[in-house]
Structure formats: C-alpha cells, structure tokens
Amino acid sequence: MPNLPLRLGEVFREHGPFVCRSLRYLGVKEPDLDDMLQEVFVVVCRRLGDYEEKGRTRAWLYSICTRVVRSHRRKLGRRREAALVTEEPVAPVQLNQVEDAEALALGRELLERLPKAQREVFMLYEVEDMPMSEIAQALGCPLQTAYSRLYKARRRILAAVASLGAENKR
C-alpha cells in the first residue's frame, strides 16, 4: 500500500477486511462500502496519534465503524435517496468457489435474520473470533449483556438453520 503512513498501512493491511465485514454487518450496502471504508480509514488516520495500543485494535476500529455508519445513516435520512444500484454479482467459476459463494450467501442470510444488537455480538464472536471482553468494549455494553445477546443469537441461528434444513428436505 504505497504512500500511506506506516502505521496506517499496517492497520489497513491487517484489519481492512475486518472493517469491511463489520461495515457490511452494520447494514452498509455494497455500493456504499468503498466510501464507508474510506471514511473509516480517514478517521483512523486522524486518530492514530491518540490511539494507545492495548491489543484491542479491532474493538477500536469497530467503534469507529459504528460511528461512521450512524453518521452515514443520518445523511441518508436527510437525502432520502433511493439506491438504484443492486448488489454486486458474484461470479464463481470453480466448484470450491461455488461452495464458498453458497456458504457465504447462507451466512449472510442467517445474519440478516438477527436483530442488530445480537448480530453484532454474534458476528464479532463467531466470525471474527474476538474475545467477549473486547466485544463488550467495542459495543460499549456490560459483559453480561454481550453474553446474553450471544446466547439469544445462537438460539435464533440454530433454529433458522434447522428450519432451512427442514425446508430443503421437503
């Protein structure tokens, strides 16, 4: 990543995909993802000087994502503009890519069934492998609340998977 300050480059390299996924699971649509990602990293760049490394970079990044998305929503609410561009098409070419694409589609569908608060915890814990204490910090909620959301999300997801399996058998 040329011309970027060193630390920003590191953050970009290591956590860029995480930020991207987080934005998506926060409800940002595909056409807006590039802009949102850029905005997040512009904020990251400004705030890197104040950030103290405590091994919780992802929690910090996630909180930035949350704020950027909230601000984006406010703007969208003001503009009341309908996005005409649909999701980017996925064009898998090989068998394993097809399987991956199917699994990805299933994962996204399952996540969309969750309420936002539960989805955040579930995604950060089950997909991003973040420890619960870090998740609670990122979300600004008590640890017990985070656990409670995780268990509820798990129940919903497992029920959804079971119902999908039943539908497929029919």
């Binding site: 860029g16 995909p17 996924r21 699994a103 990805l104 994962g107 995604m123 998977v161 399996g165």
Partner: peptide, 15 residues
C-alpha cells in the same frame, strides 16, 4: 452448513 457459512463469512475474498 452453518460451520461452513461462518468460515466463509470470515474470509470474504471480495473484501
């Protein structure tokens, strides 16, 4: 299928 979906979500190549 759920385990595969969770793994796929963590490595989205488009990202």
């Amino acid at each position: 299928n759920l385990a595969r979906a969770l793994r796929a979500l963590g490595r989205d190549s488009q990202d």
